Lab assay of single mutants.
Amino acid sequence: MSIQHFRVALIPFFAAFCLPVFAHPETLVKVKDAEDQLGARVGYIELDLNSGKILESFRPEERFPMMSTFKVLLCGAVLSRVDAGQEQLGRRIHYSQNDLVEYSPVTEKHLTDGMTVRELCSAAITMSDNTAANLLLTTIGGPKELTAFLHNMGDHVTRLDRWEPELNEAIPNDERDTTMPAAMATTLRKLLTGELLTLASRQQLIDWMEADKVAGPLLRSALPAGWFIADKSGASERGSRGIIAALGPDGKPSRIVVIYTTGSQATMDERNRQIAEIGASLIKHW
Rank of each mutant, 00 (worst) to 15 (best):
G216V: 04
P181Q: 00
A211S: 09
A34G: 03
V21D: 06
T198R: 10
L223G: 01
E61Q: 14
V214G: 07
A40V: 06
D269R: 10
P105R: 03
P181L: 03
E169N: 12
H94G: 08
A235G: 10
K144A: 14
S80H: 15
G194A: 10
E87R: 00
K284L: 09
F58L: 07
A200T: 14
Y95L: 05
S80K: 14
L135F: 03
G251L: 07
A235Q: 06
S236M: 02
M115I: 09
Q37R: 13
D33V: 11
R220I: 00
W208A: 01
R176Q: 11
S221R: 11
M268Q: 07
R41Q: 08
Q204Y: 09
A211V: 04
Q203R: 14
A222R: 14
A9S: 13
K30V: 07
P60Q: 12
P60Y: 04
M180T: 14
F64C: 00
T262N: 10
K284E: 10
A245E: 00
K144R: 14
M127K: 07
H94Y: 00
G52C: 02
A245T: 01
E61G: 13
P12E: 07
S96D: 15
P224Y: 00
G39D: 13
L74Q: 00
G279V: 04
D174E: 06
V214Y: 03
M268H: 05
E237Q: 14
S221W: 05
R241F: 04
L146I: 05
G279C: 07
V8D: 15
T158S: 09
M127Y: 11
T179R: 00
L192Y: 05
R176G: 03
G154A: 03
I244K: 00
N50G: 14
S236R: 15
K30N: 07
K53Q: 14
S201H: 05
D155E: 00
G251M: 11
F22C: 11
I278P: 00
H285A: 04
L218G: 03
G216L: 04
L120G: 00
V21N: 02
A222N: 12
F22I: 07
R118E: 14
L282R: 01
M66T: 01
F228S: 02
S57R: 09
D33R: 14
A246L: 13
G43A: 02
T126K: 04
P172T: 07
Y44M: 06
A276L: 07
F228A: 03
Q204A: 10
K144V: 12
L196E: 09
E108C: 07
A246T: 07
A200C: 11
L167P: 02
